[in-house]
Write a protein that binds this DNA or RNA. Sequence first.
DNA 1: TCCACGATCGGCT
DNA 2: GCCGATCGTGGAG
Length: 195
Amino acid sequence: LKRLPRSFYTRSALTVARELLGKILVRKIGGKTLTGKIVEVEAYLGESDPASHAFRGKTERNSVMFRAGGYLYVYFTYGMYFCSNVVTGQEGIARAVLLRAIEPLEGIEEMKKNRGFTGEFTLTNLTNGPAKLCEALHIRREQNGADLLGKQIFITHGENVPGKSIVRTSRIGINAAKEKKWRFYIKDNQWVSKK
DNA sequence: TCCACGATCGGCT
DNA sequence: GCCGATCGTGGAG
């Protein structure tokens, strides 16, 4: 259960995106350990990507995206949700990989509590979306900029995902650059969001 | 200073 | 399939 090294993250966003599939996201909180396998991601390529938060350059909100690889970029959206990204590449160049879905492994009871279900609960519904996984793992404003080589959130080696079970498609929920196939997910995994 | 809108989700038709 | 919730952000003026 060793953390991935900085060198894993300082490569291109598309490479890191593909290779994050199958890795284990680990969240330590209140003496508990919550983990999940990364099954769906999207790459965002900064100034050269109209769909990226960093398309128009550096601002207060997106500044973490400009760091060297291996930090967490968390943003608040729709007035009520948080989404998280793994920052990749070199310092000064904004690149990130949005974590869209994980398959819950450890700490499922705690994740249920964090999600605060009112209606029907299903295991799939626990972490099958970017805002859902943040809620389940209690990732919020305070985790923006967290070092992925630190103690509270990190990523470890998981299973090797063969190329033939990786699907590459357009990104979801954006209006610009819809033609770019920068979304990657593990084929037939039930936590991958539909569409 | 203002204000339209968003890398979403859950409930309703 | 559609719509409302809810508010920080940043581009426009």
